[in-house]
Each structure stands twice: as C-alpha cells, then as structure tokens.
Amino acid sequence: MNIESTLPGYLEQSDAVRARFDRIRQREIILEVRNLGKHYSSAQGDVEALRDINFKVHRREFICVLGPSGCGKSTLVRTLAGLEKHSSGKVLLDGKPVLGPGQDRGMVFQGYSLFPWLTVKKNVMFGPEMNGRDHDEAERDARLWLDLVGLDKFADAYPHQLSGGMRQRVAIARALVNQPRILLMDEPFGALDAMTRAKMQTHLLDIWRNIDITVLFITHDLDEAIFLADRILVLKAHPGEVQEVIEVPVPRPRSAASLSSPEFRATKARLEELIHPAAAQESEEDQVVKPHMIRFTNVTDNVE
C-alpha cells in the first residue's frame, strides 16, 4: 500500500506528454465510432455484444483496446474491419461509413492467417495484385516491406518454415503493403512466447514511428497495452461497453526501462482496478470450475 501512495496518479502527465497529446488531438480523425452496438441471437437468447461504443482515432495514433475475455474486443475489431455487421451506430473511416472489408483497413489476426500455399513474398504481393497492381510493381513493393520487417532473406520460404514471430512479421508486411489508413491488430502477439512478444512489440513501435500508419491494437495483456498505446480503451464485459479511455502518461520513446517507470506502474494499477475489481466477483468460469484438491503424495513428502 505504501508503495502505491508514492505513485503519481495515472492522470498526471508531464508537460512533454501533455504537449504530445495536444498535438495528436489536432491531427485529423481517421476512424470514428459512433454509438456502435451489436446484438446477436445465440442458444442463450439475445446477446448484447457491444453497447454504445464511442471513440475517435486520430492520424498516427496508437490505440489499444483492452478488456477481459468475452468483452467483445474481438467483435469490435472485426466490425471495424467489416468482417461482421453491427446492429446500430456508425463506423466512419475518413468520414465515410464502413460497409464491408476493404484494403483501406489492414488487419493482422491472432492466428497465422498467412496463405500456406504462397511463399512469403507472394503472400505480401497478394494484396497489391488483388487491387490491380501489376506483377513487377507488386513484387517491388513486397520486397520493400519484407526488408522493412527484416525478412527479405526469407522471401522464397513458405510460411510453415518460419517461426511464429516471423510469420506475424510477414502478416504485418502483408497488411501494410496495401497502405491502409489504419492497421487493425487482433491480439497479434497472443500466441507468441514472452521473449518474442517483447521483440515484436518494440519492432511494431519502430514501424509505427517510421511510417504514416494509425494502429488499433486489441490485447488482454495490461503491460502490452501500456507499453504500446497512446490511449487505452478499456472495455468491460456483458455487455461490451467502454469503461474508460486512458491517456497513457508514459513518455515516448519507450523502452524496456519504461516498464518500471512510475507512470507505467500508476497506469497499470489503474487498469488492474478496472479489469480485476478489488471485490472480485467470481467469473462464470470460477463459479462452475471448482477444483477439489486431493493429496496424492505422502504427508511427509512436501515440496514447499
């Protein structure tokens, strides 16, 4: 407790950070979500997956959407991508309503969504070719973006020959080669081990710093959200609603050292309050799954 009292409030921002947020707010709005709602009917009856979601994303902003499982964050990003229909409200990209999937919104999935029958280079060339670019042009672009994610040496490898982290790099290159207005990422590093994940996060920030791209990143990992985001959209479950939008006070550029900065810890404390409330009500799973621990070893055979 006494540690926490020494922490600054998560709302306190240094001058540099505040100035940065002011600058972001002056940029044009890329994505606007207005009163977004989604219902679907399931075996349990009508389910409200999303309720009255409102937010705006400015150009070259990095937004993380954070929430417990089942809060509808995947539904949200899939709706933004146009892969799912919403029931009410509006999604506006550059002021125009989103009606279906399109190359103006790149998407990186959690699972390995690379085309297994195409080499790495052909995977990246797929988007430009679909959008009517000729082969040579597409190949030149693919080379460029593969170089950017550091995989030019693997241009002729098949996806199955790559590690998980490398595959996600290809997926990022494949999404970015289309030069989308916004990059939607649905827990892209969720399946990676901790080391690779940390590397990928730094790499993603490098990319974001260097090119004109706005990122909307879904995660359930608090550290990941704080490390990456300008603003964090915290969702709560049943129904999926925006609980709070947090402007992350951790100054940029960020590095591994940022993880232990007071701003970082303050933000994390706040997020933990929001996501795991103190009087933790049991989740549905906890109510059903109750392990009954039986001693299978000799009473004197202790490990602790």
Partner: peptide, 28 residues
Amino acid sequence: DTTILEAALTLGTRRISLLTRVVVPAIL
C-alpha cells in the same frame, strides 16, 4: 480455415477471385 478467407477479404479480395485465388489453392 475462415481466418484465411477473412485475411483475403481484408486484403481487398472480391467475389470470384476469392474462389479462384484463395479457396481453390487453399484446398488443393
């Protein structure tokens, strides 16, 4: 895998090319 189809859709694949460029090679 639907992810493959969805990935193709977000990359700008439309109608018949979804069938010829994604579904057929994927199941070949």
